[in-house]
Structure formats: C-alpha cells, structure tokens
Write a protein that binds this DNA or RNA. Structure first.
Length: 378
DNA sequence: AACTCGGGGAG
DNA sequence: CTCCCAGAGTT
C-alpha cells in the first residue's frame, strides 16, 4: 500500500526544516562546484565522513581543478590517495578527468545518464553529481538512503540486492521534491548518519518520526533494513617480508596495477606455506620475486594489519645482499632509500613495517633514524 | 548474482 | 573481537 501524497509533504517539510538548522559545513558543500562534489563522492565511497575530511583537503590542495588532475601522473595521484584505500578509485578518477578534458571540453556532463558512462561513475555517484551539482531530479541511493527509506516506508524486502534495491530507488525518487532535489538527498544522508543510524537510532530526536512507518508500526524500527547474510569468516594469513639492504638503500617493488593495492610500492615478501618457518618463507619469496639471495636474516618484529576481508600477520626480517650485487633488477623493482620509498605511494601496512624497522635500528642497519655520530663521524 | 577492493571508527 | 561506511568493476 503506497503512502499518500500528504505523507510525502510532511516528511519533506520536517526533514528540510531539520536540515536547514543542522546541516554541517563540509568543505564539499561550500559551493556547487561539480568537480569538488565529484571528488568528495568518490572519496566518501564506503568511507565515513570523518575519515574523508583530511584526504579531501589534501587532494583539493594538490589537484584544485579537473585540469590539474588530468595532467597529473598516475603515481602522484596514487600518492595523494595514499591511506584512503580502494586505490582503483584514484586511477579511475584520473582516467575520467582525462576523458572529460579530451572528449568533453573539460566540463563534466550535467546528466546522470551521461556521467554514468565515465570510469568510476556508478549509479550512485552519477546520480549524486547530477543532483547535488546540477539539480537533476534523479535518486542517488546509498547506504543512508537505503536505511532511511526502508524505515520511512517500512520496506521489508532484501534491500541489498537487485529487485529490492530498485524498489528503494523508486521510493526515494517518489520522495524527491521538484525544487532542489539535491538538497533533499543531502538531508536524507545526513539524517541517516546522525539520527537514523544502523543501530540505536535516535528516533526520539528524529524530525520525521511522525511520518516514519517503522517508528509508528514496529516495536524495533532498527530491525529495518533487513540484515544481509553473514559474511564468511575472514582467513588469517601470515606473510614474511624482507627488508633487504644494500648500502643505505633497500629493495622495493611496485605492485601490478589493477589488483589489491594496485600500483603501490612495498617490500618483497609473500605467503608462509604450510610447514614453513617465517624465515624460510622470507628467503624463498625473496628468491622467487627478485632472484636475489640474502645473507643472514634477522627478525625485526611482527606487524598486524586488518583488511576488510582478511587479516594479515607480517613477519619482518632484515638482511643484506649475499655475494656480488646483481647486474640489473626486474623492471618493477628499485633500490631506494627509506625517504625515497616513503615519497612513493605505499600501503598502510608498508608504512607500519617501515616504522617498525626505524624503531629497531640494531636489527635493520641503515634504516633507523640517522645517528649524529654515524652520519657526521670523523 | 557473487567477488573483489582498504582503511578506520564505533560499540 | 564485529559491524559498517555518500559503491564500482569484474566475472
């Protein structure tokens, strides 16, 4: 049974009045610059606002407009993206910027349908840019909207998958006002973030409670939307990593583009096989990945790092090259100083490994903080 | 339709 | 610990 027209007006009025008073001044709300909104939407993908703010300011400072982004090297985009995760987004962002500059005269398309043709623009971001920046009346459905609309309209289906998702998009579209639909959608998102939260929603403080079917009709409004099925247990992987030094440099390699942490730099290493010690794995991985052999390997420590779907335990060893230096490295490998490596895009786990090595200068000679006596000795 | 793809913060 | 986040691309 669809809601009547009056309920739409009531929700709209209550929500927009609340938003007018409570709207937070995020930097991407300073104006309606489509570029700034676009960058924010991409950074906010699967990421909370608080985590994005720093990355956003850094990105805008380095790439203030589309032209700067389109002219940048991929590696410098990745470097600015470092720590934000989902690094494929950074490559898609740059690709889209180049396409907009070369094919579209440097202006973002104004319609969601056209935006959706560009790399990195899925249904949500295309609709979000079209509606927030250009005022198109098209539903931009993301996690907050799924939750808010599920509760307002008491949607009991599977909100995560195709048919349920499409139904929610239709219901969101029905809520959109003719006047400034983008503002309304921002209000839905902010309500979902601050009031209509996944757990412990603040229904007592919700401006739309009177128009919310879950609140009026259910003992537990927070049971909607229906929880998706449990994800499988994350495997715990162990890996060995080698800090191989040669003079004041260490061996680093760039990961292949496209996959996990694509295009980022890291230390050589890999999985510890069944029945293998971490040190044996370190030696084997070093040989397989580089063709090089280390002398004695000293254990430096263990770094733990959690990804969304797996946790890893990284055993770090340090050692130096045995025998004569190789004539040449493989194309994706370099001898770099610690500072040089830190200037390239590296994953958080590699940052942790370098920090660990820096705190253990005895076991990792040449990688610790420079000591005055050694650096400026007689 | 199911998988992959990071990192961080709340509870 | 678990859950979840202004999702998109690939298979």
């Amino acid at each position: 049974m669809p809601d009547g027209r009056a309920i739409f007006r009531a929700r709209r009025r209550a929500l927009l009045a609340w938003f007018a008073a409570e709207r937070r001044p995020w930097p991407w709300r300073r104006d309606r610059d489509p570029y700034r909104i676009w960058i924010a939407e991409v950074l906010l993908q699967q990421t909370r606002v608080d985590s994005v703010l720093g990355h956003y300011e850094r990105f805008l400072a380095r790439f203030p407009d589309l032209d700067h982004l389109a002219r940048a090297r991929e590696e410098s985009v990745l470097k600015v993206w470092q720590g934000a995760g989902y690094y494929g987004r950074a490559r898609a962002l740059r690709s889209a910027a180049r396409e907009i500059r070369s094919r579209l005269g440097g202006q973002l398309p104004r319609r969601a349908r056209e935006l959706a043709e560009l790399p990195g623009f899925g249904p949500y971001i295309a609709a979000a840019v079209a509606s927030l920046a250009f005022g198109e009346r098209v539903p931009a459905l993301e996690a907050n909207g799924v939750r808010v609309i599920s509760r307002w309209t008491r949607f009991e289906g599977d909100a995560g998958r195709g048919p349920g998702r499409r139904e929610l998009a239709r219901r969101l579209a029905a809520e959109l006002p003719r006047r400034d639909p983008g503002r309304f959608q921002e209000a839905v998102m902010e309500l979902g973030e601050r009031i209509c939260r996944p757990r412990n929603p603040l229904c007592g403080a919700c401006p739309v409670a009177a128009g919310c079917r879950a609140f009026r009709e259910l003992a537990h409004p927070d049971r909607l939307p229906r929880a998706r099925p449990r994800r499988s247990q994350p495997p715990r992987r162990r890996a060995a990593v080698v800090l191989l030094t040669r003079g004041d440099r260490l061996l680093a390699q760039r990961r292949p583009p496209g996959g996990l942490l694509g295009g980022l730099w890291e230390l050589p290493g890999g999985r510890i096989e069944e029945g293998e010690s971490p040190e044996e794995a370190a030696r084997r991985e070093l040989r397989e990945e580089t063709g090089l052999t280390a002398g004695r390997l000293l254990p430096v420590g263990i770094v733990r790092h959690a990804y969304s779907h797996l946790r890893v335990e990284l055993h770090l060893f340090s050692g130096s090259l045995a025998g004569v230096p190789p004539a040449r490295l493989r194309p994706h490998q370099r001898w770099l100083t610690v500072d040089e490596l830190r200037r390239r895009p590296i994953p958080r786990a590699t940052e942790k490994l370098l920090d660990l090595a820096g705190r253990a200068p005895a076991a990792a000679a040449g990688t610790g903080p420079r000591r005055r006596s050694a650096a400026a000795g007689p």
